[in-house]
Amino acid sequence: MSLERIINVAFQVYAWLIFIRIILSFIRHNPYQPLIRFVYEITEPVLGFFRRFIPPVGMLDFSPLVAFFALELLRQIILNVIRALGL
């Protein structure tokens, strides 16, 4: 498996975890369930970072949307560097 493919898969998995976190915000769940705790622990560092700059508007939290754009931008930058280095 190429380095480019590994990076793409890693970013896709993280994007899906953020999406799952969004879905969890709309349904009642047990926050102590291990799988749900895992999703929160993995996504909170990124979402918390963006929440510091983009406060919720009413009941809407735009940090996941900004995180999606930032992750895509970061993925493109990393892939361009890898391609430029010929890895």
Rank of each mutant, 00 (worst) to 15 (best):
P55N: 10
F50C: 02
R52Q: 14
I22N: 04
E41D: 15
L65W: 04
V13R: 05
G86H: 08
G48E: 12
V57D: 00
L71S: 02
Q12A: 03
R83H: 15
Q12V: 00
F38A: 11
P55L: 02
L85G: 09
S63E: 10
Q33L: 03
I42P: 01
F62A: 03
F68V: 00
L85K: 06
F26R: 03
R52A: 09
N80Y: 11
F11M: 15
Q76Y: 13
Y40L: 10
W16H: 01
S2F: 03
S25F: 08
L60H: 10
A84Q: 14
A67S: 15
L35D: 01
A70G: 03
L47S: 04
E44K: 09
L65N: 01
N30T: 07
I27F: 15
M59L: 08
A70S: 15
V9P: 00
P56D: 09
G48F: 08
Y14M: 14
F69A: 14
H29K: 03
G48N: 13
L74Q: 04
S63I: 08
V66P: 03
F38E: 00
H29I: 00
L79M: 11
I6S: 10
F68E: 03
P45T: 01
N8F: 06
R51F: 12
E4P: 00
R21F: 12
V66K: 08
L74N: 04
E44L: 11
N80I: 01
I23M: 12
P45Y: 04
Y32F: 13
Y14P: 01
L3H: 07
E72D: 15
V57H: 04
G58Q: 02
F49K: 07
A15L: 13
F62P: 00
I23W: 01
L60F: 15
P34E: 07
V9L: 13
F38M: 14
P45D: 03
L24T: 02
I18F: 02
I54M: 06
P31N: 06
P31T: 02
L73G: 13
Q12H: 02
S63R: 08
L85D: 02
V39M: 08
W16A: 09
I77Q: 04
F38V: 00
N30R: 04
S25D: 10
G58P: 07
I20C: 09
N30P: 06
R21W: 11
G48W: 10
L3N: 09
Y40G: 07
Q33T: 00
L87T: 09
I22V: 15
F19C: 01
V39A: 07
E44M: 12
I27D: 08
P64E: 13
L87S: 11
R37H: 12
A67V: 07
M59W: 14
F53E: 07
S25H: 13
